[in-house]
Every structure is written in structure tokens, then in C-alpha cells.
Design a protein around this nucleic acid. Sequence first.
DNA 1: TTGAAAGCGCTAACAA
DNA 2: TTGTTAGCGCTTTCAA
Lengths: 332, 332
Amino acid sequence: MRDVAQRAGVSIGTASKALNDNGRLKADTRTRVIAAAQELGFRPNSLAQSLHRTRSMTVGVLSTDSFGRFAFPIIEALEERLAEQGIAIFMCNATDDPEREKRHLDQLLGKRIDGLLVTGRRMDKRPPVAVPGQTMPVIYVFSQADDPEALCLLPDDYGGARLAVEHLIGLGRRRIAHITGPESFEAVTLRHRGYRDALTTAGLSASDTFFRKGKWSEAWGREAVADLFDDAAEMPDALFCGNDQIARGASDALRERGIDVPGQVAVVGFDNWDVMTLAARPPLSSVDMNLRELGRLAGERLISMIAGERFKGVERLPCSLFVRQSSDTNQS
Amino acid sequence: MRDVAQRAGVSIGTASKALNDNGRLKADTRTRVIAAAQELGFRPNSLAQSLHRTRSMTVGVLSTDSFGRFAFPIIEALEERLAEQGIAIFMCNATDDPEREKRHLDQLLGKRIDGLLVTGRRMDKRPPVAVPGQTMPVIYVFSQADDPEALCLLPDDYGGARLAVEHLIGLGRRRIAHITGPESFEAVTLRHRGYRDALTTAGLSASDTFFRKGKWSEAWGREAVADLFDDAAEMPDALFCGNDQIARGASDALRERGIDVPGQVAVVGFDNWDVMTLAARPPLSSVDMNLRELGRLAGERLISMIAGERFKGVERLPCSLFVRQSSDTNQS
DNA sequence: TTGAAAGCGCTAACAA
DNA sequence: TTGTTAGCGCTTTCAA
């Protein structure tokens, strides 16, 4: 900065004004300073800037499980949104270790982050992050804090499930089964509820004979199909699966039994994970949680909160249904 | 800091010495200051600290494609290693857009990062990142720069392929086919070379009749199996696949033809991606690129380079083979 | 063993 | 319209 001022033949304060576009300056002076900065390859030290301004232009992202498959689209979109405002993100991973989480938090606070985003799939609500002073914005994404004052951003699992099941009903299916993951996940409960409500709304019975909970794996999908179809008095004509791995396993198991998908049984998964949906035969319909949207919204909210706005409570973002051959009787 | 000094009844300089454990201080004074800091919940402003010290204790991670599946383990392990030294990482994603890359780089330089890590699967060597001054350490991981002075950390694709093929040879297989991805990837070339060298070393012919290149997908794996096995004069007794998706597709296709894996045909994949290897029937053997190791090594090197050491050239980390049922005739 | 003071690179209020 | 100056919060000589 000093060098730039000297080069341009102005005071150091003037140079600062010119480069930051504030204060009243003669256009000529301004351009002269900017030229000097250019020639010298001057790059303002944002550490020094942050010492003055109230903001560091950085936020922290704390992942509680490791950076899983679900975290990436969220973080990617978040980073994109924040980068538009010149905000950089610090990434930390605590792997569910409270000790590490605390160390990371200390480090982030030392770096004077302007806000914090906490993420990480969990089965239950997590204890809120202990930020001294209460003033720094904190957002939980794809994660819920046990604190009514906290802002939590989540996909609308319930609505996503209804979307899927209503689609199957629209296809004329009446015996729709639901195969899903471990009930310790809130998502399992919510999706199950969506499934049942969609059925009852349509005047269909939602008994538990067509409901199976287990693991999030292909093997479980295959197993559940065996259970539902082999020697069954009444066979389902559609499957709504809790995730795409289950759906893929189920779809494989059906094919191997000579049951046509979607002709005899339509299948819809959840997550819209291309690795599964596109590799399956036929390609799988699936509910998309719009994780990039979620990440972008988190960025949006964080920016507003840094600017002083307050948000609280649980906000759920709608899911979308992607229809592919596994539930499309016209294309099959 | 001022508050802490006041509270402890010492000068501000003394307080600093006490908290940073340098200078000669009476033990009593030191503990008094530390106590005061504790009570006041004092947290040093690392922005201010960095203004003095030469280091900001931050590094940048620039991803050129988006944060892909391969990037997670690398970045995770990197972050873990750097966190041990109290170094935080800024994550940026440029998605192969030079414009965005430049903006991110400017931002990072403004934040006075101590080092930079560039990552992102690419087919060809990328132009080196333009860092003015040449002094900041830069490492390319899972990515290669077109600059002999750059340090590039990569998995040993060639060695990994040899490992797999030698394993198959050890099983007594003699007609080993290689199904792989698009040849525009350097990894495809290297793995192919490893495959051929392993064969010729064992005195087997490495003709192109058993070589198929295509896509990185399950569908391609199935297709290639159809091509290799249906109406073939001579059928392979083993498949070495360029990635796990191909291997999975191939394995499915074999099963559907009633060909026993591993009895008649052994299958080995590449990536050791559990989503594929464990869901396949039988579970797939696969070559692991040790990406976490790679990330950790990158952290290690970055720390050394920040301390002044210099490294250059391409460094390749060994792969490991994970044997599962698809190539284990004892377990099958 | 401690305190005083200069300064890291920058901004912003106030004077000129 | 520009220059001067007092810090932002901390570290580190140098004196005391």
C-alpha cells in the first residue's frame, strides 16, 4: 500500500480511498493510484483489512460426520453462493468427535469467521454448537440442532415421499409397498409418514403388510423383495424405496424373478443418485432432495444473517421427482 | 489482550509473552495472566497475529473439477493432517473455469495463504497455477501440472494394475482380459501398460483381442462382456476392469450368462469403492488407490514446503489390492 | 523480570 | 480534494 501511494505520488490514505472506491477523489488521482497498484502487482492484505472492518469475509463449515456423499453438493453450492460475495469458506471435519469439534471451533473463532455452517447426516438432533457471545450466525444444514432458536435447513422428506407415492397412485397402482432403511433415521420416519398419508388420502389402506425397514443397502433391497414376493398371498404392484440403493437391489431382484419393471411392478427410489439410478435396468425413477438448492439457500441465509437478519426454526426445502423408466409405463 | 493484561495487572507485552510461552517470565506472572485470559474467555485474534508472523496458518484447496467422489478422501485426510498443525483450509471450486479459478486465486492470495493445493481429476496436464512471486508452495494432487518444477502427487496406476493382474495370474488364470474406460484418461493408459507388462513378465501374450476400452460405466462393463463372451472362439478366464463400475457391470453380465464368478471367470476392479464392491454378487476384489494416504502425504509435503523445503516432480503412491470373493477361489 | 513503544498493512475520521 | 493520524489486536525488540 505504501509503495503504491509512493508510486502514484499520493498519501497512503488517498491510495486506500482510491482502491476502495470511497471518499471523494479526483478521477485522475484515482486512475493514477489504480495504475500504480496494477504495475506493482499490489494485492490488499485482507487480514489487515479484516482487523478494521467488522468482517473477515470468511465462514466456517463444520462437518460432523466425515464429508459424505450428501455433503458435497451442499457445500459446493454454498461455496458458489458465498464466493459471489467474496466470502471464503474454511472446511473442518470433526467426525462426530466432540473434542475435535471443539478444537476446530476454537480455531475458527480465532480466525474471526463471520458465520458458521454445521452439516452432517445424523439420526438424532445434535447439541447446539457452543459459540460464546451468541452473536455469530450459525446454520445447521442437513442436520438438526436441539435448540428451538437454531436455524435448521432440511429437505422435505415427508413431501418427497408423498410425491413418489402419489406418482405411483397416478399410474394406477394400488398395492404400493415401502422398503426403507433403519428407523433410527428421522428421514425413515418422515418418508414412511408421507407414504402412509399419500395412501390414505387416495383412499387406499396403509397397512404394515407392505412395509419393510432394514438397511440402506442393495442387499437389503433384494432381501425385502424376496420377503414381499416369494410365496406371497398378495404381491405389490409398486415399490417406493427409502433410497436408491435399496431400489436398485429391489429392481435387480424383481428382474431375476422374471417380474417386469415397470409393467408388473413400478419402482421409485430416493436420492436421485445417478450412480444407482442410471445403472439400474431399467433406469430408476427417484426423488431428488435438491441438495444444491439447499446449499445455496444456506449461503443465502448466512449472508442475510451476517447482515443482521435473524432466522430460526426448521425450514424444509421441497424435493423433486425424476421419472425414469422404472415407473413410466409409456416409455418402457 | 488489553483486558487480559489489565485484569492480571501486567503490561500488554508481558501478557503476550505469557500467553505465547516465550520471553523470560516469573512463573507466577505467567499463571496469573493465563488465569485472567481464562476468566475473560480470551481468544487471540489470529488475523492480528498473522499480520506479524510470516504465516497465516491457512492454506487453500482449489478443486478444478467439482468436488468429486475422489476428492473427498483426499481432502479429508489432508484437512486432518493440517489440523494437527493448527492449519485451516480454504476450499474453493473452480469447475474448470479459468476465470473462476483466477478469482479464487486472487482471493486466496489476498488472505495470505501459506500454501496451495490443487486437485481435480483431469485427462491431461493442466497449466500450472499462476502464483506471482514463485515463493508460495503449490502441490498438485490427483492432478498434474504441465511444469517440471511442480510437485504432483498421484496414485501409481501402473503398479496398481500389475498388482491386480499378477494376482489373477497367481490364481492360475491365463486368459486375462482388460476392460477399461476412455483412453483420454492417463490412468487408462497407465493401467493398460501395467496389465500388459504383468502378462508379458509372466510369459503370457498380451494381444489386443482381450482388451476393450469404452466408458466408466456399468453398462459398458455389461456390453464388453457380451462382446468378449458371446460367440467367442476363446473366452477369458479372468477380467481386470478399469474401475469398479465396469467390474460390477461385467460381473452382473457374467452371472446372467450363467458363468460362475470366480469359478470360471475371476474379476478384479479398480477404486475399491464399497458402494460397488460390496453390493456386487459376489463382492468384488479391487485395487485401492489409497486416496487418504495421498491426502495425508500432501499435507505432510505442504507442511515441509511451508517450512522451506523444496520438492518437485511426480511422486506416485503405491496402490493396494483388496481381495474379495470375485477373485478368491477358496472362499467362493 | 517486566514495561514501553514501534510497527505488521490497512481504514476512517478529521484536518487542511 | 487530499493528507494526517489514530488505531484494529497483536508481537517483539529494546530499555528499565
